[in-house]
C-alpha cells in the first residue's frame, strides 16, 4: 500500500497545525467524545448564532487521522447553517463507508481522507470529530440544550481490536 494514499499532505498539514484548537470560552455546548480503539479523545465546543455555526473549537489528543479530520471539520462548518454542516457530516460518513460517489463540493478538504476508507480500524478515528460535532449540534439545537454539558464520555461498544 502507498502510505501517501492514507497520509495525504493536507492531512499531515492539519495534524501538525490544527485549526480552531483548544477550548471555546463561550461555548454553548461542549461534548467529549472518545474512541476506545485508538484512545483518541476530543472535546468539541460549539456556539450557534441562530441556525448558523458561530464558533467551534476542538481540544483533542490522539492519532493524526482523528486530529486532522476534526481540524478539517472545524474549517468546514464555521459560518455555515447547521443543516448544511450536517449534510457535510453525512457526506463524510458516506465517504468513510464507501457509499456512492463522493460529493466533493460538500466534502471540501474532507476528500483528502478518501484513502482512510480502506483501513477499517482508522475509519472510527476519522469520524470522531464529525460525530462529536453532530452530537454538539443536536444538543445546541434541542430544547433546553443551551446548558453546557461538560464531559459526557461516550462508551462505545468495543471492537475487540485491542487484544493483548
Amino acid at each position: 500500500m502507498a502510505l501517501d494514499d492514507l497520509y495525504q499532505e493536507i492531512i499531515l498539514d492539519h495534524y501538525k497545525k490544527p485549526r480552531h484548537p483548544g477550548r471555546l470560552e463561550d461555548a454553548q455546548v461542549e461534548v467529549h467524545h472518545y474512541n476506545p480503539v485508538c484512545g483518541d479523545e476530543l472535546t468539541v465546543g460549539l456556539r450557534l448564532d441562530g441556525d448558523r455555526v458561530a464558533a467551534v473549537a476542538v481540544d483533542g489528543k490522539g492519532c493524526s487521522i482523528s486530529q486532522a479530520a476534526a481540524s478539517v471539520m472545524t474549517e468546514q462548518v464555521v459560518g455555515r447553517p447547521v443543516g448544511e454542516a450536517l449534510d457535510q457530516a453525512e457526506a463524510f460518513r458516506r465517504l468513510m463507508h464507501g457509499e456512492g460517489e463522493p460529493d466533493e463540493e460538500l466534502l471540501g478538504d474532507g476528500i483528502a481522507f478518501k484513502g482512510v476508507a480502506r483501513y477499517p480500524v482508522r475509519v472510527k478515528c476519522a469520524l470522531l470529530g464529525w460525530m462529536a460535532f453532530k452530537d454538539a449540534a443536536t444538543r445546541a439545537g434541542g430544547p433546553g440544550a443551551h446548558v453546557a454539558e461538560g464531559d459526557s464520555p461516550r462508551m462505545e461498544p468495543g471492537t475487540g481490536r485491542e487484544g493483548n
Partner: peptide, 12 residues
C-alpha cells in the same frame, strides 16, 4: 507521534 500512526507507517 501517536502509536497508531507509528504502527501504520511500520506496516507499510
Amino acid at each position: 507521534i501517536h502509536p497508531h500512526d507509528v504502527a501504520q507507517v511500520l506496516d507499510a
